[in-house]
């Protein structure tokens, strides 16, 4: 972990980014094509939008979050696990606010890499009536041997 010199490293619970994401017909059709899904029934968007909004709706590229946490995004970062809790389905024709919060960042031993940083981010997806979904991702970032 190597946060930039001019910024204090983020702490657990800190909001790292926030943005908005509108799900329209074209966006839903695109996700459905890529996810090999059929046409939409009703107004419920493809469930894969939970991850699309979490990563794509925070107003900045996901790379920026990693760099802010002092992580080398180009070192081969991979998604290790995720969870989603839907309070309500995400629907087409809605505009959502998305907030990314740091849950934890820990360095762990890795059989493959020697050491790896585990970054856990929590994403809240809200509409005008409140929370719609919460997404939690764990990303594993290999640590260069010199930095381990």
């Amino acid at each position: 972990m190597n946060p930039s010199r001019n910024a204090a490293p983020p702490v657990a619970g800190q909001v790292l980014a926030a943005g908005r994401y509108a799900i329209d017909d074209a966006a839903d059709e695109r996700i459905r094509r890529l996810a090999k899904a059929g046409p939409r029934r009703g107004d419920e968007a493809h469930a894969g939008f939970a991850l699309a909004l979490a990563l794509g709706g925070i107003g900045v590229p996901i790379r920026d979050i990693f760099e802010r946490c002092g992580l080398d995004f180009d070192a081969g970062a991979v998604l290790g696990s995720c969870s989603v809790d839907w309070d309500r389905p995400l629907t087409v024709g809605h505009d959502y606010a998305v907030t990314a919060t740091l849950a934890s960042l820990n360095r762990k031993a890795s059989r493959r890499f020697g050491a790896a940083d585990h970054l856990i981010l929590s994403f809240a997806i809200d509409d005008e009536d409140g929370l719609c979904a919460t997404v939690r991702t764990t990303t594993i970032v290999p640590v260069a041997k010199a930095a381990a």
Binding site: A35, G48, A50, D85, W86, P89
Partner: peptide, 25 residues
């Protein structure tokens, strides 16, 4: 990774069209 997960969510949508997810691990 989200693309891989989306395939599984499509599988659910195809197999259980009257259902919607409430949680996922």
């Amino acid at each position: 990774g989200p693309a891989n997960l989306a395939y599984l969510l499509t599988l659910i949508e195809n197999a259980a069209p009257g259902m919607t997810p409430i949680s996922l691990e």
